[in-house]
């Protein structure tokens, strides 16, 4: 093989036998001159995820709009039904928030024969986060793109979920096209601007968008119960954007300081504060998502 290496183009794929080889054009490897085929690991990922009925991506073009909060609360709320098995995956490498929000930040991952076993916060609610694998909560992860992709793929390949009704991804878009997505935004144009880009991306990547959730939508003062628009919808908010793009608006969740508290303490918001208008909004959105996927 070694004398052939000089003939192999620098940009050839791994296992490329080179143009002079008898295997040229016949070998398993894909030659660089051809269009790059799909990632060979995709079938493994697909097999690993086949026991899962619904895979839902929670996306947003903008940071800090409440993706992780929404994913976690959606997970908690779906899992209130004992017969529904739910998994939550957090593949935010630079800032994994799910372990804290779901109250399992000190857990570690256990390797089993079949792969990694996720952390169970309830019998029917499994959590897997990059955060469980980082050496320390304080250490930054300074990685460039390719290294990140490697870990994300390993994550999809090696976690043993078993059979699940829902797997929720708190994440940038994944590797497969059979996912559904929920897009989270806040009402102001600065945020919608980024979210429109994300929806454009979903269309390019052929990820169907189930709908949009408008988070931090209005604030009710706990003192006087007067309502304020903290992030003012200067361009009509998510409602106008959804109409413009022809996407369903799943609902609007008002700001409630108790949501942030629930996240810091890792508890289910809808359970702990059942009387909040935000809880009602969450439950409405969740029942809409359920009816859309079933």
């Amino acid at each position: 093989m070694s004398e052939l290496n000089g003939q192999i183009p620098d940009n050839a794929n791994e296992h490329c036998p080179g143009p002079d080889s008898e295997q040229a054009g016949k070998a398993e490897g894909i030659c660089a001159t051809q269009a790059r085929g799909p990632d060979p690991d995709i079938p493994i990922v697909t097999e690993r995820l086949q026991g899962i009925k619904h895979k839902i991506l929670v996306l947003s073009g903008k940071g800090g709009v409440g993706k992780s909060t929404f994913t976690a609360q959606l997970g908690f709320a779906l899992a209130t039904d004992e017969d529904t098995d739910v998994g939550v995956v957090d593949i935010d490498i630079c800032g994994p928030s799910i372990p804290r929000i779901m109250g399992c930040k000190d857990e570690e991952i256990h390797g089993a024969a079949d792969g990694w076993t996720p952390v169970y916060v309830q019998d029917n609610l499994a959590v897997m986060s990059i955060g469980f694998m980082l050496p320390s909560e304080e250490e930054p992860v300074i990685w460039r793109g390719p290294k990140k992709n490697g870990l994300i793929k390993q994550f999809l390949k090696d976690v043993e979920w078993g059979s699940l009704d829902y797997l929720l991804f708190d994440t940038p878009p994944g590797t497969s096209d059979e996912h559904l997505s929920v897009v989270v935004t806040t009402p102001q144009e600065v945020s919608l601007q980024d979210v429109r880009k994300e929806i454009d991306f979903c269309r390019k990547a052929r990820v169907p968008v189930l709908g949009v959730v408008e988070n931090m939508s209005g604030f009710v003062c706990p003192g006087c119960h007067g309502e304020s628009k903290i992030f003012y919808p200067t361009t009509g908010g998510a409602k106008a954007m959804c109409e413009e793009l022809g996407i369903p608006l799943l609902g609007s969740i008002p700001l409630d300081p108790r949501i942030g508290k629930a996240c810091d303490f890792g508890t289910s918001f809808t359970d702990t504060v059942p009387d909040s208008p935000a809880t009602k909004a969450y439950l409405d959105i969740i029942s809409k998502i359920k009816s859309l996927v079933n």
């Binding site: 003062c221 706990p222 003192g223 007067g226 304020s228 903290i230 700001l255 300081p257 942030g260 810091d264």
Partner: peptide, 15 residues
């Protein structure tokens, strides 16, 4: 914190 424009009470929305 957020100062309510109606009653000037400050709520720590994100602590």
């Amino acid at each position: 914190g957020f100062v309510c424009p109606h009653c000037s009470e400050c709520t720590n929305v994100f602590s």
